[in-house]
Design a protein around this nucleic acid. Structure first.
Length: 587
RNA sequence: GCGCCAGUAGCUCAGCUGGAUAGAGCAAUUGCCUUCUAAGCAAUAGGUCAUAGGUUCGACUCCUAUCUGGCGCACCA
């Protein structure tokens, strides 16, 4: 709605400038496109048009242009709604916010949970690949950023009209998997999750760490692991049995972690099933001349066209590589779900891999190849540097979540809110999860980030729980208002009772929401929504701190302010699921 | 060596396609709870936007160089 008003004014002002230019320069004056901005201060209006760039053409100082434009427009009768403000070299517009509020009130209530959805990706099928864990260890903080991003971007794309398919690719084969298996075989003594009380993935992870220690003492360790992989590929029953057992443990453990952190998929792929898929495509590409064969039998692609080196796509012994597999998997996926676009959520360290993969698929003639995207995200570091599994500095996902949940629980108890809340543990978990997701998503995906475990457990300030708290506060007012509904039966929402500065700003922010969803969808960037949510709730917070809402002196004010609060609440409820925040009625 | 990315307050991060005095949170100091949940609100303090040039009426934003940090450049995944 805001966008519409802005564009109306833009077109209109542009027209006036064009006319002015014509008078000075004649008919074919080339006039630059008008720039739209938001004024830095509310008293400067709601829309700003900087006029610097016209000074030369019109041979006038920008201030004079603004003046001339204002006079010209004020004299016209047929113009968009709003009031012009002179602000030096800027021509600003103060829009009719109360009229906007009236329209907004109707449409937001009518659209409900659909408010803010866009049709940006209407009719598009988008596949999202994320998580993709190894089955040799539990999830850590790095995975959590991946999962948060994957879930959030999926939700954002869906809110923009796309049909989204979330897929996971379980990395369950390879030497690294054999390492934990081998260590277990040697030192495991038949331990099981039941006998140790350990979660399956943690038990397996224990032996992955064990391998790293053993490897230092025995230099045949790696060779033994490689030998095990050969056996695995040959279908050795003993090895396969162990593999199935341990993989099962890990997957059970991962399922618990996913469940806890609200991560879910529409389909799972397993590397043990996909790793051979690409070979066929590579051989066909060889026939077509996309690849070439070396004397030793290995198959390569020359990447000169994209200014890169050469890359192997098939080993000399004919076996598949990571690249081979990804070629095959992409094709198989397109067969499963004919996507218009496939987005890989994978850490930035693999940028090269995806550049090459996309190029190869394009060369192989798949027309959908140009719609493949690598949503590359930065590393998660700790205050004292990188996470290193070998040095035991990784932040374990389950531990972190449990710590956060227990702190949240303590908070609720300290505030004596147990009875107000919908289940102590349930609420504590929801707070922990929201804190975590918000922490991970508020940073632009492409950037590396620092995760300070000590600071991340804070629930005050710009955090997920703060947003939840605002949602709960508004919900609480709405509940009280519902109870008193009869006393307000003869009053209806009238925006003219919303005259406070903050109310104007809140109305505009509510109107802005659809654009935010669209921007987040276009940029594949959840942080856009995080920033918006924080700005919105902070503003609301200040407003309701300074003004009485339910207890306003006049019923007209109560109804108007509750109306506005309801709009804000609706936006919050619609936006939370896009960034992994649980909406709580009470906390 | 080559390529990609980043460098904004003590710390963690925003800053839209160049535009009006560079913004938050945390940490610090200080006010505000018999009144809609203080997980809150407000105030003070904190900056040569890595450095040096350039483009422009105008640069945190674009270009070049330099410095610093990260990542990549496997018949590993």
């Amino acid at each position: 709605m805001l966008e519409k008003i802005r564009n109306e004014w833009k077109l209109f002002v542009q027209e006036q400038i064009n006319e002015m230019a014509k008078n000075v320069l004649g008919d074919n004056a080339a006039v630059a496109e008008l720039i739209i901005q938001i004024p830095p201060k509310p008293e400067l209006g709601d829309i700003a048009f900087p006029l610097f760039s016209y000074a030369k053409i019109l041979r006038m100082a920008p201030n004079k242009i603004a003046e001339a434009l204002k006079n010209k427009i004020d004299s016209l009768s047929d113009k968009p709604e709003g009031e012009l403000i002179l602000a030096g070299p800027y021509l600003n517009v103060k829009i009719d916010v109360l009229a906007l509020a009236t329209k907004l009130y109707k449409s937001v209530l009518a659209e409900g949970s659909d408010y803010g959805k866009s049709n940006l990706y209407d009719g598009k099928k988008i596949m999202m690949e994320f998580s993709c864990p190894n089955t040799n260890k539990p999830l850590h903080l790095g995975h959590m950023r991946n999962d948060s991003l994957g879930m959030s971007v999926s939700a954002i794309l869906a809110a923009n009209g796309a049909e989204v398919k979330k897929v996971n690719l379980i990395n369950n084969r390879g030497v690294h998997i054999c390492k934990s298996m081998l260590a277990y075989q040697k030192f495991g003594n038949g331990e099981t999750p039941e006998s140790t009380g350990l979660k399956g993935d943690h038990l397996v992870g224990k032996y992955y760490v064990k391998f790293a220690q053993w490897e230092k003492e025995d230099d045949t360790a790696v060779d033994q692991a490689k030998a095990m992989l050969v056996k695995w590929e040959a279908g050795d029953t003993e090895v396969l049995k162990l593999w199935k057992l341990m993989n099962g443990w890990t997957l059970e453990g991962l399922a618990v972690s996913y469940e806890k952190t609200g991560v879910s998929f529409d389909k799972y792929y397993y590397e043990s099933e996909t790793y051979k898929l690409g070979k066929d495509k590579v051989l066909k590409g060889l026939d077509k001349g996309v690849f070439y064969k070396e004397e030793d039998g290995s198959v390569w692609i020359d990447l000169e066209e994209i200014k890169l080196d050469k890359k192997v796509v098939l080993r000399s012994d004919g076996t598949s590589l990571y690249m081979t597999q990804d070629i095959g998997t992409a094709v198989a996926r397109h067969d499963d779900f004919p996507f218009d676009s496939l987005i890989y959520v994978v850490a930035s360290e693999q940028q090269y891999h995806f550049k090459v993969l996309f190029y190869i698929l394009k060369k192989l003639g798949y027309k959908w190849a140009k719609e493949l995207h690598h949503l590359s995200y930065g590393m998660v570091n700790l205050p004292d540097g990188k996470m290193k599994s070998r040095e035991g500095t990784v932040v374990d996902a389950d531990d972190l979540f449990d710590t956060l949940a227990s702190i949240a629980k303590k908070e609720i108890q300290e505030k004596e809110r147990e009875t107000q809340v919908d289940g102590l543990d349930k609420t504590a978990n929801a707070i922990a999860l929201s804190a975590l997701n918000y922490y991970l998503l508020q940073v632009s995906p492409t950037k590396d980030m620092v995760f300070d475990p000590k600071k991340s457990i804070s629930f005050t300030g710009n955090t997920g729980p703060y947003l939840q708290y605002m949602g709960a506060r508004i919900s609480s007012m709405v509940r009280m208002f519902e109870e008193l509904k009869n006393s307000y039966a003869s009053y209806s929402f009238d925006s003219s009772f919303l005259k406070e500065e903050e109310e104007r700003e809140l109305i505009k922010m509510v109107a802005l929401y659809p654009e935010i969803v669209e921007k987040a969808g276009r940029d594949l960037d959840p942080s856009v929504i995080c920033s918006y949510l924080y700005d919105l709730t902070k503003l609301f917070s200040k407003w309701y701190h300074d003004n009485k809402i339910l207890k306003a002196e006049d019923n007209n004010f109560v109804v108007a302010r509750m109306g506005l609060s309801t709009l804000v609440l609706q936006v919050i409820q619609n936006a939370f699921p896009l960034v992994g925040i649980t909406f709580l009625e009470s906390m």
